[in-house]
């Protein structure tokens, strides 16, 4: 069960979200920060160009590497589990464990927790987007945080049940 890729799938999604967040940070961080003290004519200028470029390029390279490894893992899983293949393009989330009624039971429990989280977080997110004085980037970051947390909740619940059985 530990080696079942569907168990690791939420972790991969969390990883992709983090990389996307890094990319977003790189794209939206200010290029320069300037502090000027007019009385004494002092000026302090920091250029972020190099760091910004490194974050953007680094996150793209990291994303592509992760995507390649992810694709290879799916291929390996499909080869080893021909009856439980993970389709490359499917509406149904592949992290559902439904080999039998016991696994379906824990998947349902985990999905219920995620649904409960979504019931509260989405209206909160909408209110935040409507009334927040912060820039649009923070709304996008808040969406990524909600997306990340839903995978954390799902993974922790499934792991809790399966870890108990492994011990």
């Amino acid at each position: 069960m530990k080696n079942d890729f569907r168990m690791q799938y939420p972790l991969w999604m969390m990883g992709f979200i983090v990389v996307l967040g890094l990319f977003l940070f790189g794209v939206n961080s200010p290029e320069t920060t300037e502090i000027v003290n007019t009385e004494t004519e002092q000026s302090f200028l920091v250029e972020y160009g190099l760091v910004q470029g490194f974050i953007i390029l680094g996150s793209i390279v990291l994303y592509l590497i992760m995507l390649f490894v992810f694709y290879m893992k799916i291929r390996r899983h499909n080869k080893m589990n021909p009856t439980q293949k993970i389709p490359s393009f499917a509406i149904r989330p592949p992290e559902y464990l439904e080999q039998d009624e016991g696994m379906t039971h824990i998947t349902r429990k985990a999905s219920q927790k995620v649904y409960t989280f979504m019931t509260w977080s989405l209206p909160g997110l909408a209110v935040f987007a409507m009334f927040s004085p912060l820039s649009r980037i923070y709304t996008v970051l808040a969406i990524l945080v909600v997306a990340f947390l839903q995978y954390v909740i799902y993974y922790r619940e499934i792991r809790k049940h399966l870890r108990e059985e492994d011990e």
């Binding site: 696994m103 039971h105 049940h161 059985e165």
Partner: peptide, 15 residues
């Protein structure tokens, strides 16, 4: 025709 985990869930009365 079920997983080992499902047998464990049943034994514990979890399911």
């Amino acid at each position: 025709d079920v997983t080992r985990q499902t047998i464990a869930f049943i034994e514990k009365g979890e399911f």
